[in-house]
């Protein structure tokens, strides 16, 4: 069955987008990325450290995985726009996962700064994938502003709390004309499957894999969960009922 994910005109056969934060080493990260089957993976932009050995970029290049730079660490639209422009220069991609957070403690996305940055980046020719709260109104406004996807959170970054407001995620999915990517909060495979069952087009996760006791095994679990959730969504689940409905007829 051909069921490609299309973002900004590009096709992906995997609906699992990976982050790279939190892996104890590039070797562990490499194994996890391969096991996940991902075709699109985020990196952050930071000051160059002359003593650093090896690069996450080499891992992605070797594995043929498309790089998705993010603007992690930015608190204002201005910082995010500059970071996106630096990423475009360094990585030769106009794709950006726009991430503008409001405070260190929750890392919750700042909707005002995010929208401001999104408008400026779209005008500057970027393919913008904004990380947002589970807010259907904001998701719509960002789509109207020209974003290529919207990325609502399930729960705060790295929290592993799963999808705290499935109803809002469904509302975002119902109204969206661009891909909806559940981003942040995934703790284990069932969370990823639920995201897809709710109708999300893809899942982005990092910590759940990179900080698992066996990252490569969890990556494989996530790959299966995203696929299972996607198939269940397409298959159409049965309605919930208050009482039993016999599956074995009494009078055959």
């Amino acid at each position: 069955m051909n069921d490609d994910l299309i973002i900004g005109g590009e096709k992906f056969s995997s609906r699992l987008i990976m982050g790279t934060g939190g892996a104890p080493s590039l070797e562990v990260l490499d194994q996890a990325l391969v096991a996940s089957g991902t075709e699109l993976t985020t990196v952050a932009m930071r000051r160059l450290d002359p003593s650093a050995r090896g690069s996450v970029l080499d891992v992605l290049r070797t594995r043929g995985i498309k790089v998705l730079p993010n603007t992690a660490g930015c608190f204002t639209a201005g910082e995010a726009v500059l970071t996106a422009r630096l990423a475009r220069e360094a990585l030769e991609t106009d794709w950006v996962k726009l991430e503008v957070v409001s405070d260190e403690r929750t890392l919750l996305p700042d909707p005002i700064e995010t929208f401001d940055a999104a408008e400026r980046l779209v005008a500057d020719g970027f393919v913008v994938l904004p990380y947002i709260g589970d807010d259907p109104a904001l998701a719509r406004r960002l789509e109207q502003a020209g974003c290529a996807a919207v990325m609502p959170l399930g729960a705060p970054i790295g929290s592993g709390l799963g999808i705290r407001n499935p109803h809002n995620i469904e509302l975002i999915v119902e109204a969206a004309g661009v891909p909806v990517i559940l981003d942040a909060g995934i703790g284990t495979a069932s969370d990823a499957a639920l995201a897809m069952e709710l109708g999300c087009d893809a899942v982005l996760l990092a910590t759940a894999v990179t900080r698992a006791q066996r990252p490569d095994m969890m990556a494989e679990a996530m790959r299966s969960a995203v696929r299972a959730g996607r198939l269940a969504r397409l298959a159409g689940r049965i309605p919930r009922r208050r009482y039993a409905e016999a599956s074995s007829p009494m009078n055959p």
Partner: peptide, 10 residues
């Protein structure tokens, strides 16, 4: 002068 590169993140 800021010199940036890609690192693990996100």
């Amino acid at each position: 002068v800021e010199v940036l590169t890609a690192v693990q993140g996100g």
